[in-house]
Write a protein that binds this DNA or RNA. Structure first.
Lengths: 228, 228
DNA sequence: TCGATTCGGATTGTATACAATGTTGTGTCG
DNA sequence: CGACACAACATTGTATACAATCCGAATCGA
């Protein structure tokens, strides 16, 4: 009845908050994450901030330069390719598993996700739309019921967001949403072959929508991005 | 003694040392990792130890129980299955890639690895043999030249070591070595199809050599395991 | 005797203080 | 005028002190 928050450990809370900001492109690659500044923003000491930054560094969302501070990661072209290679290896098979074991409740949850995604796009909230688009992939992994693989995909999706921030060149924001719709239909019909194939192509489309030749970075203000 | 190391960051050094101890089964699943005790052993403050433990926790090698301390992780049966599912998804394809791009130098390095493995087995150093066996898989991933996937396999191999500690039954340590030999031959002949197939079967053999019904734990002393 | 309760010790969680390192601006020398 | 050297500053790295929490044992009561 009480306790709205069961007191989640502070470092994880902050790490998740920062991860969300990165995912939604409020924090852009290269942005410096000063420990003291973050401490002031969240009202905690650097101890907590450091733990959070360490966690993000382990997920490769943040780069920790010794004695020089933490920065939002800037994946190289090579890393970008590797991330999508890994996704191409993991996600199609995961989509197949998901299609084989998906329940009506899962389908409803997926549909809600897609609806939210549309709402965000209609509201012009590009960052949130991007985040939800990633969550769609995670939801599929969750349905496949393989926690370990889901963890990996979580990391890959998060890094993809950074990659998109650096290398995406405008070429149809719609394909995302259409591809998700098509996947949704495959799931609804329990067509695992189709789901696997659609996911594979979806990832290839995503990769081909990137310009992996030069980066187009653009650092941002810290306090502003976090709205605190 | 001397101090020849170019001062690698302490937390990582300690984390690696602990990871090695876990990998070699000197630290068994369930062993409590007291911050103060570790601090005394390594001659650093709890700050460093906490950072190391956090890193290991993120790799799922240790479990962090809030307000109750860190323990060497005890993967459940479910986690064990998931880890090998993930390996079955990643490693055969990685072995294929490795076979396609392996160089003479790589082959020599792999052979040295196998030789070391044999030496350890002959010397009765079971823990070290197990570690080297894992390193063999990592070496293959490294040859495939996909850092991201290699990172994942690193985690999975480390966790496999915990799983073996808990669920291993068939005492035949030889099958490992034979399978690695066969893989080695496939690599030498650049037979990528064979390499993929051999890796797939190798992992299945590994999985079938586990008894995933009940665990057989056995905690150990901390100072003794770390030999300090 | 058995159970619940409370007090004590031990361990972890967090904040703060200090040391080490990297950066930047300034001044001098060539 | 430019380049190097040095010094002051800012930021991170580490240690320590204190607070919060948990576990267990002893005590009290039924």
């Amino acid at each position: 009845m009480n306790d709205p928050l069961p007191a989640a450990p502070m470092p994880d809370t902050i790490a998740n908050d920062l991860a969300l900001a990165i995912h939604e492109h409020r924090l852009m690659p290269g942005t410096k994450l000063s420990e003291e500044e973050l401490g002031e923003i969240y009202g905690v000491s650097r101890t907590i901030i450091r733990a959070a930054l360490q966690r993000l560094a382990h997920d490769r969302l943040v780069e920790l330069k010794r004695n020089r501070g933490a920065y939002v990661a800037q994946p190289t072209v090579r890393e970008a390719r590797e991330v999508f290679e890994a996704r191409a290896l993991l996600e199609p098979r995961t989509a197949r598993s998901a299609a084989e074991r998906i329940t009506e409740d899962d389908l409803a949850a997926l549909q809600r996700h897609i609806d939210e995604e549309h709402a965000a796009i209609d509201d012009g909230e590009a960052g949130r739309a991007l985040f939800l688009s990633g969550q769609f992939h995670l939801e599929i992994a969750r349905i496949a019921d393989q926690a370990t693989i889901t963890d990996f995909i979580t990391q890959l999706v998060a890094r993809s967001s950074l990659i998109i921030a650096l290398y995406w060149h405008r070429r149809g924001a719609l394909c995302e949403s259409h591809a998700h719709h098509a996947l949704m239909r495959a799931f609804a019909e329990r067509d695992s072959d189709l789901a696997e194939e659609l996911m594979k192509n979806h990832l290839l489309d995503l990769l081909s929508s990137l310009d992996l030749r030069n980066r187009t970075s653009a650092p941002a203000s810290l306090r502003e991005a976090l709205g605190a």
